[in-house]
């Protein structure tokens, strides 16, 4: 099995990993970087659970080879709360009961973080449109939408986000 060495920045830390070329970025984050906050479910780009930010853009990490991320900057759900304290978005999810089993939550948090960072004034329709790329089988989405709407203020105020 062909293996390649890649260097990428994960949550602000430059990291060198030896990855089989067929390994997805999702698996490399979980198994090589030991960051298991990124969840893997469908493994073919339907569910959105594995969403991470690559160079600032929300992407499905199961639909990207780890070798393709050589040189990239990655932000995973762990990077949203680098000091262990919940980010405003995460705190809003908690306050609005926007998660139940929690399996989809990392992908939804990273997606919504990317959205609100780029579009802090996203309205409910835009949030729902973007959220369509993430499956949640517990909440019925209503509390997720409420949590994201309520978190917008924190993205408007702070130019600098993790």
């Amino acid at each position: 099995m062909t293996t390649e060495r890649i260097t990428l920045t994960i949550n602000g830390t430059e990291t060198t990993l030896d990855v089989p070329v067929r390994m997805t970025l999702a698996d490399a984050l979980r198994e090589k970087a030991r960051l298991t906050g990124t969840h893997v479910a469908c493994e073919h780009g339907v569910c959105g659970a594995c969403t991470v930010l690559v160079d600032g853009l929300a992407v499905r990490s199961c639909l990207m080879l780890a070798v393709q991320a050589d040189g990239a900057e990655i932000l995973t759900v762990e990077g949203l709360a680098p000091d262990g304290a919940l980010s405003p978005l995460q705190a809003s999810f908690r306050a609005h009961h926007a998660l139940q089993c929690g399996f989809c939550t990392p992908g939804i948090l990273t997606t919504m973080h990317a959205l609100l960072t780029a579009e802090p004034d996203a309205d409910e329709e835009r949030i729902r449109d973007v959220l369509s790329g993430n499956l949640c089988r517990c909440t019925g989405y209503l509390p997720i939408v409420e949590a994201v709407l309520a978190a917008r203020d924190s993205y408007r105020r702070t130019e600098e986000t993790p």
Partner: peptide, 12 residues
């Protein structure tokens, strides 16, 4: 474009 797949997919 808005009909094509999802936000995350359109990023790549």
């Amino acid at each position: 474009i808005p009909h094509i797949a999802h936000y995350q997919i359109r990023n790549r």
